[in-house]
Each structure stands twice: as structure tokens, then as C-alpha cells.
Design a binder for these strands. Sequence first.
DNA 1: CGCCAGGGCCTCA
DNA 2: TGAGGCCATGGC
Length: 263
Amino acid sequence: MTFFLKSKKFSKRMKNKIQELYDLMYLNLGPQGWWPVYDLKLKKCVYIPNRYTKNSPKLIFEISVGALLTQNTSWINVEKALAKLKEEGYLSPKKIYEASFEKLYELIRSSGYYRQKAEKLKNLSLFFIKNSLKELSKKNVFELRKMLLEIKGIGRETADSIILYGFQKPIFVIDSYTRRIYLRFFGDEKEYDYDELREIFEKSLKPDLKIYSEYHALFVEVAKRYCLKKIPLCEKCFLSLKCFYAKEFKNGKYTLSKNRQIS
DNA sequence: CGCCAGGGCCTCA
DNA sequence: TGAGGCCATGGC
């Protein structure tokens, strides 16, 4: 597959394909209601489709904590940690910054890597203590991203998740699911750098908060339901008619490198 | 039991 | 600047 060459002729086609993938997922799965927020009464995380009101400071912090805790970790484990943090009133920068490491370990243990993540949460909390949300909200996407990336423990995906879902500014989030579906659906085996792949999506779409939010959330849903790591459920997947990998699979030939790790 | 899960940091060429 | 090792819990 060579339609991702830099020539303009191909980039138009690339744009259409990326928009087509979005449309297919959105039409089949609908709005996803990201980012999930822990509900104290229901005692679980809730998804609220089409909520695009402005996030409160508390919500921005909760989303940031969730984005950090879910690094290389299944959401269900994060949800348990978020529940404890929120139930015990620790979901504020001040409380986390002042908490002992022992206490934080106890609260977030279920989310894995809990020693690293406790340290990261402290760094994140100090960031929100030192910078007012008013000032942060005024920053443009790139200034905000630069500041977040200076926090030890916040990498590109976490920063972008915080910006998109927390601060509600349009930046396209790339994660392992995005890479997997991108590779399989388009059959494009080039190993893009994080920002290279982000720009492919951003150049193909309007810089629209709703589209960016839904696109990433839809990738996660498709990856969890159908596009599994080892054995993708192509026969059940609504993308299979348009998916490069599914079509090759059906024809009994794999042109994707067989031994390539698809993470 | 092994694999997977909404990464990021450190080290060492 | 990129590849490899490390971090850790919980579900299946």
C-alpha cells in the first residue's frame, strides 16, 4: 500500500480513507461519551454521549489522573483506583500532593506500576498547584502540550489525552489501539513516530473537538470488541469489507509481515 | 500457566 | 533517536 506517499494526489485519497474509517465507526457504534468519569452514587465510571459542556476544574483533574493511571493498563484496573481516590476524597491536587506515598500506594495499587504512578501523580498534582487552570486554559494546544511534557511521567499520549478530554482542545490522541487498527485497516506497514501518525490524522480531519474525541474513543471500542491483538474477529467486525487486513485474510493471503508485532 | 492491558523513563550504543 | 529493559496489577 503506497497511498500514503507525500504527493498531493495521494494525500487527498488518504484524507478520504481516514474520514471513511471515522464514518464507518461512528455510524456503527455511535457517540462514545468519553472521557469516563467515576460516579459516586452509581459506584462506577459513566460514559455520557454528546456531553460537550465545559469541564469543571475537578473534572479536568480527574481526567488527567485517569489518563496517567491508564498508562499500559486496562481501564477496569484504573477504575478501581479512581473509585478509591474519589471515595476517600483524594481526587484533588492538594490532597495527592500532601498524601504519603504509603497512602497513595494503597489507593492506586490496582492500577499497576503503583510506585511509579504514585510519583507521577505527585508531579502532576504539583503542576496543577503551581499553574492555575485559568492560565492553563488560555494556552494554545502546543504551549499546553509543551508544559505537560515537562512533567516527569507525562509522555505524549498522556499529555494529548489530558489536552483533548480534559482541557477540551483539539489534538489527536495516538495509542497502541490506533496503531493496530491503522496498520490493519489501511495495510500501511510503515512504523510511524507518534507525532508523524498524529499528523496524518490531524491533516485528514477538521480540527474539531468532537471528531477527535470520538475518533480515538471509537478506536478503543473497535480494538476491544473486534480488533484483538492476536486473533482479530474480522468475521464479526463491521469494518471487514473495507479493511485491508480482513480482505487479505479472507483471500487466504497475508501481505502484512507475518511476524511483525502488532501492538 | 501465559498473555494482555487506552505508556513512559532510563540506558546504551 | 531508537531499540531494549523495566515497572505491576488483575482478568481471562
